[in-house]
Design a protein around this nucleic acid. Sequence first.
RNA 1: GGCCUCGUAGUUCAAUGGAUAGAACGGCCCUCUCCUAAAGGGCAAAUACAGGUUCGAUUCCUGUCGGGGCUACCA
Length: 609
Amino acid sequence: MVLGLTNDRALCIRIGTMMTLPEQIARKLTDALRAELGEALPEQFHATVTASQDLQYGDYQSNAAMILAKATRRNPRELAQATATRLAEMSEATVSVAGPGFINFRIKAEEYAARMVAMLADARLGVRLAEHPKKLVIDFSAPNVAKPMHVGHIRSTIIGDTLARLARFMGHTVVTDNHIGDWGTQFGMILWGWKNLLDKQELERDPIDALLTTYKEVNKRCKEQPELLEACKAELVRLQSGDAENLDIWKRCIEVTKRGLEKIYDKLDIHFDYWLGESFYNDALEPLVNDLLARGIARESDGAVCVFSDGTHAPKDDPFLVNKDGEWQPVPAIIRKADGAFLYATTDLATLDYRIRHFQADSIWYVVGAPQEKHFKQIFDIERMRGVTGDFRHVAFGSILGKDRRPFKTRDGETVSLQDVIDEAIQRAASVVENKSPDMPAEEQAAVAEVVGIGAIKFAELSQNRLSDYIFDWEKMLSLSGDTAPYLQNSYVRVRAIERKIDDPEFAALLSGSSKPNILLTEEREINLARSLSRFAEVVPATLDDCRPNLLAAYLYELARAFHSFYEACPVLRSENPTRFSRLALCELTARVLRLGMSLLGIRLLERM
RNA sequence: GGCCUCGUAGUUCAAUGGAUAGAACGGCCCUCUCCUAAAGGGCAAAUACAGGUUCGAUUCCUGUCGGGGCUACCA
């Protein structure tokens, strides 16, 4: 039996479908439970095995005995013990029972060593492709035209990019789409400002800034002069009815904005397959509304066209109902205003249609702030009424708050621009580089500062639970010590420093995969590092399943800690074979996991820093 | 008012219903004739409150208090 499984594993390794440790253990545990309980075990029962939080109990644990105790009328500890006895000859772990009935598994060093060998031969480092590949559209970032991105855009932009990278790596077909706000009511003001206020020289010099200044000025004046607001609305109407001059200005605004945005996206190493903004769907809106009317999904109310509840959900879960003073009142999704104009909801429905039809998407994920939860519930529910199904997700995230726990603004009430955050991050990193690596050529120092600074911003964002609100803090977002990107980048740098010093044909053979390494793990910190490395295969799929980049970020930090700790206690170059070779292999695997893991987070690594 | 969401060390954040609640920053001690000290090894320090379900609750349920969001013609 044990032999059979070993061969099984060898085969799996060869074809790149190695089971993760918890999967492998769970399968054996379930078999043992079936042998122990016979028919008393529910047919579909499958034991779950999780990584232990506290290593004193072992590497992995299962609570299966406690779960089954009641239904099978067994004492949980006794059931755990009997099951553990059946597992006593398990090849990969030693089994023990503790507490109220936990079954604990301590993975043997030889098992970890075998996994290290397999990982070295696997470009995917043990991560299997998704079983059911999706056609996935991810909608993220989505800034507005003529307004620069501010810190508020950080979350959607960085989280969305990471999800796209993860999904591609898992084998899904991914389309990234920047759904820019290029048709909103703000264009009335921008058009009026362009014609009456805009400084054309300033426009040449810094177009985005010129547009923003103009927009703000018009906005201010409108609040004081209601008649100006009417003039702006008139400009908008002329644009929407196809006025050539206004269309021309509108196009130039988009062009200028895009160019400015692309500079920032380039710096962040974030790119989109498409930029299909709101305006792209203009022609689809009227037919869409007519179709919904014809099918009885929408109807007129107070002159507007609305979608109301169809009564499928309980009132409490119905996105089209709200309770006011004990009564359930309708809150329809308005898809055409009384004045005939279309809205956000209309565009989003048209966008969803297009993505399904044109991109053949079966999955569409929107990385948009939590306040829009109700909007997306309504949109997805309207799709349900139309008979359209799919994996539609609102990947929500919390707000960025100021120290007063209110939406973040600077002292003078301005939002902080994303460009300023990036510049500040690079500048801070530059002064650290200068300090720590004074001998490095200035050019390289600048390059390091950029990678470190931008990495710090991304990692600060990605290491938090996306649903939590967080308090914006320059110190924290741009911190370069502790649980931060440079900590991880430094562990990679340390590996590279070691590898540069090696001139060993045997090691070269290992890197090229032409030799079969002999890995021997004895020191606690070696085993600890190997444990972390082997967990990569478990963490990556889980990160994408829950759309929670912080799981991967936390894992990589844990790996870097294990490496730094190993590095301090286990000399590599000064040790003798086979230890030396094993340690080199661990170093190389650490580098590979960091390289792949960080690339999934969109964070670059350095050869030296 | 109703619905959603959050409340964890001094501070900022973690924790598929699991065991002694993890980190980081800040504070206090150690470690560079040794592969990059952007590092390592220690110490002190927290689940808003009250009930309930459970073998076991930061996690699930109920209530209280406090923050934020949403609640028909903005996006």
